[in-house]
Each structure stands twice: as C-alpha cells, then as structure tokens.
Design a protein around this nucleic acid. Structure first.
Lengths: 367, 367
DNA sequence: CTGTTAGCGCCTTCAA
DNA sequence: TTGAAGGCGCTAACAG
C-alpha cells in the first residue's frame, strides 16, 4: 500500500509534484514526469479515494436513489441502474446504489455523509418528497422522470403524455373508434408516479382530439386477475357474435415490463388475435428486448435518459463547486440558488416503431 | 457542514467523546450522551464517510463488478444489482456498481483506490481472470457463480447442473424420449460462463442417466433467427404428419431472461402448442415475473444468492481485518492466506415449480 | 518548473 | 468516565 510519499521519495521529488502529475494542473518537466511514472509503476501506487475526497471534498461518485416500493419495476429499474453506471463511468464517476424502503432516507444519508457528489432519482412522483430533501440539503440532483414542478430540479424523461396521445391519434386515424388504454398498476397511480399519470392524461387528450373513445384500465400483476380483467374489457370472442360490434378494436399497453404476460394471456382470455382482431401498441418497452421487438411500440430510451440525467447531475455538482466564474456578483449566492440556476431538462419525444406486423395502422376489424 | 469539533464544542465535551458516542466502544455517562445527542441534533451533524475511511481504512461499501459483455443478461444483472443493494444495506453497507468493458479493470481500480471493502463478482466464467486479480491484490471477494476451482474464492450459485439433470430425468420419467435443451446463447458458452456450461453438462448427464435423447441447441437473440431454429428443431406440425414420430416431445429452456420471445414464437414457428403438443420447462426464471409464473420452471433464487454472497463478501472483508483473534499463530499469516482460509460456498439445490398447467409431467403426445 | 507546509474530519492510543 | 494529541494520504496554497 504505497503512498504518495513513497512515490515521491523513490522518484526523488516532492509529494506535491507527484500529486500534480496525477491531477495535471501545473506544468511538469518531461524528465520529472518520467521519474514519477517509473516510481508509480515500480511501487504499484494508486491514490486513495478517501484521502482525495477528504482533502478535496469531491468523491467522483454519483448516487442512484432507488426507492424499493413493493411490486414490479425490477426490470426497468435494474436496466437503468446498469445504464447509469455506464454513463457515470463515461464521465469519470462511479455509481452508488442506494435502495431504501423510505424514499428519502438513503438519499439523505448519502448526502449528509458525503458519499457522493450528486444524486440521480428514480421512480419520480408528481410531488416528490425527495425534491424538498435535496433542496434543503442543497445537494445536487437530477431526476429520471418529470415532476409537477418542472423547474425544481433538472430532469430527463420520455414524453409519456405525447407518447400516449400520438398512439391514440394514430389508431383513431386508422379507423379505430373504441380503444382500451391499459395503464400501469393502480398502485403506481395512487403513488402519484409521474409517468403513469402523464401517460393516462395523454391518452385521454389524444382521444379527445381524435374524437374517439378510450377506456382506461390498469394492469395487474397476477396473471389470472389480469386475464379476468381482459375478459371484462373485451368479452370473449368465442362466445358467439353478440356484442362484437361494441368491442374495442385497439389496445394500448403502458406497462414498462409486464406486457409479456398480458400478451401471453390475451388470446387465451378473450379469443382475440393480434393483429387480426385487435390492434396492439406497447408504450415504454425496453430496448434490445427480443420479446417486444416485433410489436408496434414506443420504446423507453433508457440509454439516452441515463446519459443525459447523468450529465445533468454532474453539471449540478459542478455548478455548486465552481460558482459561475466570470459572472459578476455570482460569488456569494447561496448554494440553493446556484443549483436552482443550473436546472436543465430533456423531454424526449416519442418515436413510434412499427413492429414486424405493422399492426399499429391496421384497420379495425369489419363489424 | 458541522464537524465533530463543532459538536464537541456545543456539547461542552471533547471530540473524542463525540466519536465514542457514535462508535460506542467505551462507556459514556447518560448525561454526556444526552448533551452530545442534543448538539448533534441542533447542528445536523453527520460524520463524513471519507474521514472515517481515511482513518479506519474501512469504507462500508461493497463493489459489484459487472462486466458489460455484449448482448442480453440485462434483466438478470439488473435484478441482481438491486437485490445485492438491498442485501448490502441489510448488513450496513452500500453497493458501488462498477461496470466495465474489460472484465477486470473496474475491479482493479476499485480495489486499488480503496473504494470498497470487498467485491461481488457477477458473470463468472469457469476460469475467471478476476479470480487471479483479487488474489494478487488480496482483495476480499465473493462470486455469484461457481468457478471451476471451487476453493479459490467464496461463491454462491444455483446448482444449474442438477437443475438441468433433474428436469431431464423428470421429463424422461413422464415418458419423453426425445428432448431439446435450449441452452444460453453461444457467446455465453464460448466465453466459458459457468452457468451455461454446467447447465448443458447437467442436461447431458440427466439424459444419460434416464436413457433418453437430448439435443442441445442455443438460444438466439433475434426473434426471426430463433423462430427458424425452432423450426429446424421441431419441424412444422402443420406440414402434415410426416416425421411427427421423430419430433422431440419436450423442450427445456435455460435462458435467464429471453424465454419470453421463445415462447411467443414457438407456436407461430412450429404450430406446436404447449402443453398439448410439447412439454415445456424453463430453468432460471426470475422470481415475481408474471410472464413465467404459469410455467413449470426452476427459478433463479436471486434474493437468496444475493443475501448469501453479500454475507460471504463481508465475511471475507472481516477475516482480513480481524486475523482470527484467539487462534494462535494466526497473527502473521499473509493476507492471501487469511482470505483463502475463509472461503465458504452455497450451492442452492433446484426447486422445481409446477406451473399452472402442470405440463412438466404431461405425457408425450400420442405418436 | 519544483518544494514545503498546513490542514481536510475522524478515530484511537495514551494519559488522567 | 473523559481529554489531548497524532496522524491516516492527499491537495493546494504559498514560497522559491
């Protein structure tokens, strides 16, 4: 466990010189640089993160606050965690995962103990308690998700409302008059999750604009219950023709990870076939998921969101650290103000993908 | 940003007293304790992790080394990341995600810079390069996956070989004579992934023991290619009866995350129905995944593995730190030896789940 | 272009 | 039961 002094001694220079070689903030002669490099090599020296952090109050770590609410979302959350880690590494940061029952607890602890320079917050609610926490602590943070107060903190999100609206409009334009919008589970809605509420609102708006009818229902985790609900929504096509004229002809599913089993049970539950009897579009699928690649869909741009939100988080951390050099009067603004001034957003417009069957624009079944 | 001195001053005690109140390793009068607590409360004091770590060389962080090989595994890796984070919190640790292209690079950096007390390694190969790395660095580590050298490091894993073998035996006992074992993608095999190789070996062993035939094939990411391969394996039942007698009657899928699309395309590709025409069992599904809950399967016990491997990693870290107090002659053993002495394993036996249809024990179709 | 030095905040030994 | 003091390893003035 060599220290910077060992290296300095072996290279015949001062510790600070070694430090500067690593941090490169002053000019070093090529000769000295070489000697230091050799000593570093010979001793297998690597700077200690804790000492650096103590001295510079900079961790080069980003925290991911991932509330562990009951039920689902594993797939999406896990995928984001991995992509965020990649994105953080791309900017020279590591990613610290803080899962906690209490939404704000882990975040508070990480901020207070100085474990990270900034935080990325997932599972954002419209009125998210963590927004107040990070503002109170003047801790740099960025959200994956669009809260009600859009200027409170930087955020990045898919435009769920427009994704739903454009999907409904497109289906209406193809002739569908009665649609079902299968939104995330009810618990997501009652928790106030931004993506769920915005998706539903967008579906309603799209229907109003296009003059068609949309029924909003919620996904269920249990396959049997889900099948039963599908039967209520669509009836059973095998029960004879009665009521077929009233049956919805299109289904939009906004359920980030569980559309698999919905699809799987759709035919068994209702006798309907996609796309012959029913047009189907999924909103919020994960990229590179073979089981959704054949469906008409709007993907969740995980990579883009991860990269951008990481950038925003890092930018917030740096805004706090370098108080707007060059801008006069900027020196003594309080930390909270510095952070507030640095908010930026990214609202990714939905990019509908056709799927293999092209069923998005399928005409409704003849009645 | 209050420090321990601020607290001490306000409480009218020495800094060391405050420290002892936090770390509780000597007796403090109730009176003093109260004064300190009040000062802590009033100042919002929280100890700085970096200072603690610098002083004690203890981070209370566990690193997760997650090689980012191309293709798939997102779902499983992400799920493990989340469960490991929960498990780490349960033991008072945080989880640092280090994804890297180069399998060993991130791990080496984290170990050398002292960012973590121990590492958990995922995507374990039979001969894993990282095993040498952590041994060389004498860095505590535990594996999710069972390497060829089982005594090199502590590990926890599902018994993939027995999972495959027991599945094949059960199917054979139900009368199936020709089975297909759809193993993970070829890249996983050629990379030497432990779970893939052991699963295949187990399937072959089970078939040999039961006296039935098993054909091993590999999953493909692309749905169209996968469908084509299924057609090769099973033919198309709608092409008339020719060759139906030779068709395999059971399919075992060992593909941790992509069995969804395999199922989805099975009927379209071959005309076969599950379970009427084909018995199907999936090995390595994720718990709480509605889309696999109806299938006969052997789940990947993510929670158990995460908890146990975390325990093993922490135990290794502590073995290094407290050299077997009480055992004589233990004081001056080298670090590598201390770690080697503390290896433990957990091999989780497979627990077959019946699925809703009970197709696991379905008799083969009449020929 | 390089060296010297003073801490960053905390834990822990030693002394009382 | 409590205080005082040293130093973990590093960075960034300040001084040459």
């Amino acid at each position: 466990m060599a220290t910077i002094r060992d290296v300095a001694q072996r290279a015949g220079v001062a510790p600070s010189t070694v430090s500067y070689v690593f941090n490169g903030s002053r000019s070093i002669s090529e000769e000295t640089r070489r000697k230091v490099r050799e000593a570093v090599e010979a001793l297998g020296y690597h700077p200690r993160a804790s000492a650096r952090t103590l001295r510079s109050s900079r961790t080069r770590v980003i925290a991911l606050a991932l509330p562990r609410a009951a039920g689902g979302r594993h797939a999406v959350d896990g995928r984001f965690a991995i992509e965020l880690s990649d994105a953080a590494h791309g900017l020279g940061y590591d990613l610290l995962l803080t899962t906690s029952e209490d939404k704000a607890e882990g975040l508070r602890r990480v901020a207070l103990s100085g474990l990270a320079d900034a935080a990325v917050l997932m599972a954002v609610d419209m009125e998210d308690a963590r927004i107040d926490v990070v503002r109170e602590l003047a801790f740099p943070a960025a959200l994956i998700g669009r809260p009600a107060d859009e200027d409170a903190l930087p955020w990045a999100d898919l435009d769920w409302a427009e994704a739903a609206a454009t999907t409904v409009r497109t289906l209406a334009a193809a002739g569908h008059r009665e649609l079902v919008y299968l939104a995330p589970a009810e618990r997501e809605v009652s928790a106030g999750r931004s993506y769920a509420l915005r998706g539903i609102a967008g579906a309603r708006r799209g229907a109003a604009e296009a003059g068609c009818a949309v029924e909003v229902a919620h996904a269920l985790d249990d396959p049997d219950l889900m099948a039963a609900r599908l039967r209520v929504l669509f009836g059973d096509a095998r029960d004879g023709g009665a009521g077929a004229g009233r049956r919805p002809t299109a289904l939009v599913v906004q359920h980030p990870s569980a559309h698999h089993h919905i699809l799987a049970s759709l035919h068994a539950a209702t006798g309907l076939r996609v796309p012959e009897d029913l047009a189907l579009v999924v909103i919020g699928t994960l990229p590179d998921d073979p089981s959704s690649s054949r469906l008409p869909r709007i993907e969740l741009p995980v990579r883009t969101l991860a990269v951008e939100v990481t950038r925003l988080a890092v930018a917030a951390a740096e805004a706090l650290r370098a108080p707007a050099a060059g801008v006069d009067g900027a020196e003594d603004r309080p930390a909270a103000r510095l952070l507030a001034d640095s908010v930026g957003h990214l609202l990714v417009p939905p990019a509908p993908l056709p799927g293999a069957t092209g069923s998005l624009t399928a005409r409704p079944p003849a009645v």
